[in-house]
Amino acid sequence: MADSMHRKLIESKGAVMAVLTTVAISIGGLVEIAPLYSEALGPEPMEGIEPLTPLELAGRDIYVREGCYNCHSQMVRPFRDETLRYGEWTRAGEIVYDRPFQMGSRRIGPDLQRVGGKYPDAWHYEHMDDPRATSPGSIMPRYSWLKERQIDPEAVQASMRALQTLGTPYTDEQIADAPAAIQRQGGEIVARLEAGNLSAQPDDQIVALTAYLQQLGVAGRKAIQAQKDAAAALEAGTEIPASVED
């Protein structure tokens, strides 16, 4: 019987058991993961999807640090109700530069993958300071310390260098320019906040987080629209606009 073979050949030899176990647990992972990691089958960035700016990158690191992913997903599913609630479903080509990915597994709060542009900057500022101010009944914690702490441009540069090594297309110039870029982009947000009688500094953590949130899903939405327009144009038999073609 098979039992006695098992006993004789496998159970009596630790090494055989270990090798067979290793083989058994390796097959599934290899078959599933290897194709995605290969050049040919792995996802490509969609048209117009760019790496985060230095300020947005700093904001993303805050998002990770505070553990926002514990309550918010960034993965809109291809269901009509999610399209109504959040917008277009999330494409692989939109999140190619996400390291680590932020798709999440819980929606204690709503999905954020397309939150960019949904609210004004001031909304985020007030919401992070006290979520009840903008969303009565919310169970989200306050994050008022984000107003008082600043980001470290040098740490952002170190992050950009690491990401560059991993293949994110940051240029050396972009990395060198990061501190100035932070001031520029942060300054624009601060100006908008000030219009709403809120005060902040360009390198405040709240500003960086706002910058990150405000770009979420925006470029992806444009890229998807462009794809749709192109498809519609094709169907209508008209010329494909040159900008979409390449």
Partner: peptide, 8 residues
């Protein structure tokens, strides 16, 4: 930062 990105 992880060597894998996005959906991978």
């Amino acid at each position: 930062y992880p060597v894998f990105s996005g959906i991978t």
